[in-house]
Each structure stands twice: as C-alpha cells, then as structure tokens.
Design a protein around this nucleic acid. Sequence first.
RNA 1: GUGAGUGUAGCUCAAUGGUAGAGCACCUGACUGUGGCUCAGGAUGUUGGGGGUUCGAAUCCCCUCACUCACCCCA
Length: 420
Amino acid sequence: MSTRFRSVKGTRDLLPPETAVWNAVEACARRVFESYGYGEVRTPLLEDTGLFERGVGESSDIVGKEMYSFEDRKGRRVSLRPESTAAVGRAFIQHNLQELPPPVRLFYIGPHFRYERPQKGRYRQFHQIGAELLGDPGPHSDAEVILMLVEFLRQLEFRDLAVLVNTVGDEESRASFRAALVAYLEPHRERLGEDSRRRLETNPLRILDTKDPAERELLEAAPTLADHLSPASREHFDQVLAILERFEVPFEVAPRLVRGLDYYTKTVFEIVSKGLGSHDAVVGAGRYDGLIAELGGPPVEGIGFAIGQDRLIDVLPESFLAAVAGEPPVMLIPIGEEARVEGLAMAEALRAEGVAVVAELSGRSMRAALKQANRRGVRYVALVGEEEIASGELTLRDLESGEQETLSAAQAARRLKEQR
RNA sequence: GUGAGUGUAGCUCAAUGGUAGAGCACCUGACUGUGGCUCAGGAUGUUGGGGGUUCGAAUCCCCUCACUCACCCCA
C-alpha cells in the first residue's frame, strides 16, 4: 500500500490495454491528417520560456502561473511546453519554412505540461493532437481545417457533433471591442464576481462566456463583437460559414465563444459532442494571423487546432473501443518439462507464419494453464507435449468449440487465418 | 491558488469504541495430456503516516501525506 515511489502528481502511467486505444487514436489522426497533405512535426518538449511569454501572452494564466519553468545549469530560462502552436511557429521561422510553397501543413502529437490542480480529464502532463496550417489568410483554409477535424472525429465514430464557431475579428477589431467592453463593464464593477473583476484587467473577452446568471444579464446590453468587426473580418467569417454550409458541417454560431489565448484572431471554434459536459470542449482552435510575426518571423498567417487527447479518449464512443479490442494471441502451452523449451521453438515457428503467440513459461500444469487461457479470453491454444515434439507438430485447440487437431505450424497458421 | 470528499488485502467494499472480515482475483489439489461449473485448502494487511483521548481506536480529536471531484484556467 505504502509504495515508496509513485508517479508525480498530475502524471500517470498508461498501461495495456489502454495504450492500444491511444495508439489507435493516434494512427487514425495520422491517417486522416496525411490524407489532407499534413506532415508530422516533432518539436522539443523544452523551449525557451520567452517563446511562450511572447506567443501565448504574459497575461494568460498559462504563462503567468501554470508553466513548468526553471533555469538550466547555465542559467537559461526554459519551460516544458504548455501548448504547441508557439513551438510550431518557432520551428517554422527557424527553418525558413516560408520558403516552401504555401500553405505549410503540419500536425503534432505529444505530451504537454501545465502546473494545475489535477481533476477529471485534466493532468499536469496531458496530451494534445494538433494541426497548423501556415501561410494562407483565406477562409478556405479555416473551412478545410474544420472539415478535416470533423472527418477525424467521425472516423473515431463520434456522432452528434457540433462545431461552435465564432469570430473575434482581426487585431484592430479585437482591440476596439476590448476597449468598448471594458468601458461598458467598468461602471458595473460591483455587479461582477471576483473572477470576472480580475478578468477585466487580464482578459476581458473571457467574461463573455461566464456562467454566472447575473453577469449574463449584465452582458445582454453589452457591446457586441459583431459591432466592432471590420468589413474584411465580417466577409472572412461569412465565407467560412458559407463553405461549412456547402459541406453540411453541423455548426452553430456561438457569439460568446472566445478563446483564452492572446494570439487568436478572426475564426475561433470548438467542437462538442453530446454526452460531454458543456464545459468540456475537446477541441480548441482558431486563426492566429499575427503570431508568426510576433515571434519575429515573416508576416505569415496561421490557423490550427489542439485536441485534448486525454479527454477525447475519456469520451470515445463504445463502437470505436470495441473495434480496437482485436483478437487475443494464441497461447502456447507446453506439456511436460521437455516441452518448456521445445514449445518455445514451436511458438517461434508460429510467429514466423505471422501468428501472434503468447507462451506459457511458468511450467504450471496444463490444467492450470488452460484455466488461465480461458480467463484471459484466449480463443486458441497450441499444445505441445511429447507426442507433438516427436512429430514436429502442435495440437491446436479451439477453446470455444472444444475441437482440436494436430497440425504443423504452417497448417495451424492457415487454419487460424480461415477462422478469422 | 480556493473549496469539498475519500484513504481498510492485488481490486470492490464491510466491520456503528470491544478478536480486522467478505466477494472477486491469485496459487495448489480433487482431475499426473484438456479449460469454463463445482468442491476443499493456501497466501495476503504497519486499517496512508505521526501524535493524542481511552482499560481498549479502523472507528473519536489534532497534524501530515496521498488520491478524487468541483471552482479558477484551459485541451
């Protein structure tokens, strides 16, 4: 009970059979994203702390209090990555990817770190699957990214998807709206909760998605983002919506949807699936036209999304999980002492024929071994004893029907393929 | 950072201040080359840790640690 070492708070071990689900989800992401022309990027887990201060925004909680930051042995300020968009942006700039024919399409899969109090679906080491499309400012990019995401989720067999989409406008629209919102709310300061009062300083747009009824009422009469949208931003958004309609993407315009990260511009969206809590957005996404320049790169626009893989796996449809389960391997059971070695040779022979084999090694009785095979859900066992060793064969037993037959490894492999 | 809940066998949980238990899982045998059912037996605990109250503490009190959930924030 009192184990000496435990995984660090907020981190966890993923074990079989769960890891098979993780691999299946990742394989699906790779397949779908590659079918849209995306290539995988792997950036370091460790980055210059300044990258995130600059990219994500110093006012955000992520940078302000949630980063795993420290100085290395030479006093360099480094952080475990809390997200990847800034890191992908950094790699884009560092390797002059703007020289490639635009747009550049990249995806990533991997762990990220934020120092927060762990709770359901949220860990200090968490995992994101994300994609970034860099170098195209047009609405068609936004639409394609959303289409790809919807396709990915459909392949994971999610039904009842809804894309919540909004626009926060370009940088000028956003700035003028922000000022107007603060001007409106400031006189009503006392009607705001403690959190919202703080957000008034740090991130006023976030007040829009408050859950407090009194605050919602106050917001009824607040200036709207729509009033501050530049004509270009509005046109961009309308085109995105038109394309989504053309492809029958189930979307809803969510005027209060804002994202917490400073770099978002124009289109922002989330995806929800019924059965998820209202608060549990599995995907957060948006356009970030100013980010690359902010990081010291060329004026290249971008749009991308990040999926919370831990949460996604939490709510994966049963049908997908069932498909992942797959067939258990054949269990090789040696009978007698001599067969403990000769049985291994037969296991190797079966594997050479492409059959997955788990060998019983412990020398327990055949009875006990069969019992265990049964509990493990094994369908076929290969029995190897004196007689089989003499003839160079094995006895393949179907635990479901109770039928068995003595065969060569090659014959057994063929038989198994027929059966499945 | 704030608030709440829970810590007893590998797992799920009982034991209302009086001998720490059950089910499941595990091992062995009944059955020496044939599983699922059944039966018999076996192993397993510093009751998260420390302190206190008491004749006596898993149980009451204090401290501490861990886990879980919610808020905040976000994926």
